[in-house]
Design a protein around this nucleic acid. Structure first.
Lengths: 245, 245
DNA sequence: AGCCATTTGTGCGTATGTATA
DNA sequence: GTATACATACGCACAAATGGC
């Protein structure tokens, strides 16, 4: 475990000490892949390690307990509750449910809303259509082990995929929905990965705490002929996911 | 531009309002790729947009000015100083300098330190060698337009690449250094991408502010025969980089 | 049972940081 | 710049639960 220098030096950072301690402990737990049930150092030891007051450490632990990462038992100690990151595979053949497979996890999709709209210049460029062309936008969520795992926005050209919202709602799978439109297979053409902070709505939907960091993946899927099918943006909670390229 | 709901609701988040405002403005600038020299809304307008006091907005702007993202001119306004994200390409053929090319950027590498050590179980697994086998570890940095852009740690099996630290120091290129060992070409076997918070040392080396978020890419390079050559971990400042897969 | 050390949970006082008006 | 309210962080003390002797 790496000890952060003098955490008190950075009071002017705008990030509370208890929050930075929580982030670091979470990293130790999730990053080191500690087993469920394993015991953490005592509050006193953690306080010493971070050169902080025990109250401050307790504030950090309270947050992690709230997140379900740890569980405290009076007189016994603090124990790891859920440690694993979810792996998500990105490659030429990127499918949501397949990306999670082999991890003994339960995956579920949900359609939050859908709308008809017109292509912005960015989406138009990605889908290789004219700006302003009619689109269908799907807002979806995925749950892993019943916990919110990702929020995605999908854009499809309406000319070719009119009715895809209903198809997705019925099957809760993009792959299955696309097969209804004659797309037997598709491949991931490109993916752009960035980081940003969660906005208010995302904090609520993904069950995060304010200031949480998201991993954002923006991708374009193409069919067998190389024609763009889908432009999508997926946001993952930064501390729950590991992308495998 | 997206407005965060009621930012005042999250006082218990452990992240100061001025910090969240700074993060959001930075995102608008960097993410929306505003042009250098473009003017930001007045402090009064920003205060209204974030439902915050002008003092609080000024605090946020002070941080961004400190980072070099914006520049305030008395009586004229606040202007974008440096806006673009650096794109970094990850694929079968991942080379550092090539990853940045075509972006009109100046790239420079540096060797911070090197050491001999023995393989941890994780590195051993990645390099397909025995745990405890002798290794050479390189700690490098890369600068883009003279600003710190990434911190990497490279591991090579000492048996095959003894002297690679000196070779790297002479050429400041992993690709060139490897050619001295008869490796004409190599490919990226796998990459794992995660997020974490910067530690004290990384904050100093990369010129970040406390609480900054890093994008961490862990990769394995293999030679033409499929034998692992290099195990490496690269940390990028989250708000300066965009990974293209 | 009792006793004790360990560990988490709770309360209070104080100083400083954050945000508003 | 000043005044006010709340959040953060610290320090000390003590209560409550656990487990070993």
């Amino acid at each position: 475990m790496t000890v952060v220098g003098n955490m008190r030096e950075s009071k002017l950072a705008g990030v509370a000490l208890w929050r930075r301690i929580a982030d670091e402990i979470r990293l130790d737990i999730v990053g080191a892949r500690l087993a469920r049930g394993q015991r953490l150092p005592t509050e006193a030891k953690l306080a010493e390690r971070f050169s902080a007051n025990r109250h401050t450490v307790r504030r950090a632990l309270a947050m992690l307990a709230q997140e379900g990462v740890i569980r405290a038992e009076q007189g016994r100690g603090v124990f790891v509750q859920d440690a694993r990151r979810v792996f998500y595979r990105i490659g030429p053949r990127t499918r949501f449910s397949e990306g999670i497979d082999g991890q003994d996890r339960q995956v579920r999709g949900a359609l939050m809303s859908h709308a008809q709209e017109h292509a912005s210049s960015e989406v138009a460029k990605g889908l290789d259509i004219k700006p302003g062309a009619p689109l269908i936008r799907l807002e979806t969520m995925a749950f892993v082990d019943e916990a919110p795992f990702s929020r995605s926005t999908h854009w499809f050209a309406r000319e070719r995929f009119d009715g895809i919202a209903e198809a997705y709602a019925a099957r809760l799978s993009i792959t299955a929905a696309l097969q209804g439109f004659g797309v037997e297979t598709y491949t991931r053409h490109s993916t752009r990965i960035t980081i940003r902070h969660a906005e208010a709505e995302e904090i609520i939907q993904l069950g995060l705490s304010p200031g949480a960091v998201l991993l954002r993946a923006e991708g374009i899927d193409i069919d067998a002929e190389g024609k763009p099918i889908q432009f999508l943006v997926t946001r993952f909670p930064g501390d729950r996911v590991e992308l495998l390229v």
